[in-house]
Amino acid sequence: MIVASKKPIEEVIDYIKDCNKVLIAGCNECVTVCEAGGKKEVGILASALRMYFMNKGKDVTIDEVTLERQCDREYLEEIKHMAPNYDAIVSLACGVGVQFMAEMYKDKPIFPGVNTSFMGANLERGMWGERCAGCGQCILAKTGAVCPVARCAKRLFNGPCGGSTKGKCEINPNVDCAWQLIIDRLKALGRLDDYDELMPVKDWSKDRAGGPRTVVREDLRI
């Protein structure tokens, strides 16, 4: 899933300080799972904002809605009738949802309510870890299903670097060294010989480096 975290409320207040009516829009997908932008977080943010403006003696209406998905036009249309009533919408969806909302409601200011971080998974209660950087050409088959692009601080294809210490990365003793994990996995699979193969220079044109990407599936197009 896409992992995000709540923006500091001061930032959100700064976006909407000149508005009188604001809609806080959550998303039922990834940001709900990572507890950054689901119905619950929409409620918490809305209450905090109401309190803030009340204390300031400012009359601001803060309403709440949570959509099934914000990366889908069909669900975004559900607020078609409400959107015109607001000066701005704060979207608690990931960066995709914020932009898709703005594409649909062209004359409405849409502000982000979360910082979108990475594609990852829940590691333990209250903790998420990055797993994929969307490089566009997956090499996990060669690295024991541990991604050096997303998980090595230097995205080395032929690691580990000289800073790997007791299984941890040189940048931080709390971060696993991806190459230690790769080697452990290859060993467990009895495929350590794969390590001896030099990984070729990467084609980054399939990555962000190649410019904004679009996937076109001719078989699915009408």
């Binding site: 032929n158 580990p160 210490t165 007791k166 299984g167 230690q180 390590y195 001896d196």
Partner: peptide
């Protein structure tokens, strides 16, 4: 001297 030690000579080979 870095870890994992067992791979250090093999990495030199690479």
């Amino acid at each position: 001297f870095a870890d994992p030690f067992e791979i250090r000579a093999r990495r030199l080979a690479k």
